[in-house]
Simulated assay, not measured.
Amino acid sequence: MTVFAAQVSGRRRARRLLPDLTGWGFVLPATLVIVGLSLFPAVWALLLSLRDGDLLTGGEYVGLQNYRDMLGDTELAAAAGHTALYTVLFVPGSVVLGLALALALNLKIRLIGFYRTCFFVPYVVSAAATGILANFVFDPDFGIVNAGLKALGLPATGFLQDPGQAMLTLVVISIWGGVGMPAVVYLAALQDIPRELVEAARVDGGVGRHVLRHVVLPQLRPATVFLLIWQTITALQLFDLVYTTTKGQPLDSTTTIVFYLYRQAFQLFHSGYGTAIAYVLFLVTLAISGAVLWRSAR
């Protein structure tokens, strides 16, 4: 009797495990491929950052010397400053503008689907295409923007060819191309807010701005945390737009960290040093993301 009960129990346990095993059977091959393609380059890059060589020859082992060299690199410090300026301008600008667009696109008006598509299309366009288009739009001599300024009787400006304006112009281009992401995320979050909650606030005497501040914005907090982390990572990894527009110029005023490490690794063939910069950037990104999550939890 005891043996029979044990057999029945084993069969039941097998039936319960069968769906899990079936699921793992489907996802395990893809999981192994993804994890393998992620871990191998990461480990290889870490080992490369401890050597002084290029991508073809291993070079000699130097330990943490590449990381120590970063402390006295003035060009890297300047690139970090440019990246910080870009991040400080791009992240709040794109999030706030995305929220404003989401509030507008959440209204019930005619052709609302068309308007939503128009605001999201620039986000799905590649940054390379956006950069090429920006070169024509902001060209100092033949660009559309300067043509409009001249038509209004205003002086032309250098935009991407002016060291004082190039980074600000990149921020404007990036917000135009990236605001679709915050707008869509906020729009989805707005549509998940229970209507009864908003209507109850209005019945209690709350006007538009009070309802927005005390009811809507608190409900959007998870979406805001996600967008702050996402947009910060996007800003810290800025490369393709710089590569297709200014290539770090004029006077290195738009050289970001990622473009600087690209120059070190693939133009100057200091792959160990470039990889060390990439690892430090990863740690900084991880620290910022953790700080945002910790602040949100509090």
Rank of each mutant, 00 (worst) to 15 (best):
L64K: 10
L241C: 06
K247L: 04
A287Q: 09
D252G: 00
D240H: 03
V242K: 07
P163Q: 10
P155K: 01
V242M: 10
V198S: 02
L190A: 10
F239Y: 15
D54I: 04
F282E: 08
F226H: 05
L50E: 11
Q65D: 15
G148R: 03
V137A: 08
T130P: 01
L21C: 12
N146F: 05
G113N: 14
R51N: 10
A30V: 11
N106G: 14
V8H: 02
A80F: 13
V95H: 08
G53W: 04
G153C: 07
A265K: 01
R51E: 12
A77T: 14
I132H: 10
L32I: 15
S9T: 04
R202P: 04
L105N: 06
V145Y: 04
L238K: 01
R298C: 05
L227D: 02
I109A: 10
A287T: 15
G248H: 12
A200K: 11
G248A: 08
L17D: 01
H210R: 15
Y243Q: 14
D204I: 06
F136P: 01
A45V: 09
G10Q: 11
A102E: 05
T57R: 14
Y115Q: 04
Y186K: 02
L268M: 09
G272L: 05
L268G: 00
F136E: 07
Y61M: 13
G148A: 14
I257D: 00
E199Y: 00
G131D: 06
A278K: 06
T22L: 14
R110H: 03
L47K: 13
V185P: 01
K150L: 11
L190T: 02
A183K: 00
L48S: 13
T245R: 03
I193V: 15
I277E: 14
R202H: 12
A278R: 06
L154S: 06
G23V: 12
V203C: 05
L64Q: 07
R68S: 12
L133P: 00
L39F: 12
P19C: 10
M1R: 09
H210F: 09
T83L: 03
L283H: 02
F259C: 00
Q7H: 11
P19W: 05
S38I: 11
A127V: 12
F142G: 04
G131Q: 08
Y273G: 07
R116P: 02
L18H: 10
V145I: 15
V124A: 11
Y273K: 08
T57C: 00
T275C: 14
F40S: 06
R15Y: 04
L133W: 07
Q191N: 06
D240N: 15
Y279D: 03
P222N: 09
G98Q: 06
L220I: 01
N135K: 14
K247P: 00
R13E: 09
G274L: 09
Q165K: 12
G205M: 08
D139H: 15
T74A: 15
P29L: 07
G113L: 02
T83V: 11
P218E: 06
Y67A: 12
I288V: 15
Q65M: 13
G23T: 11
F266M: 06
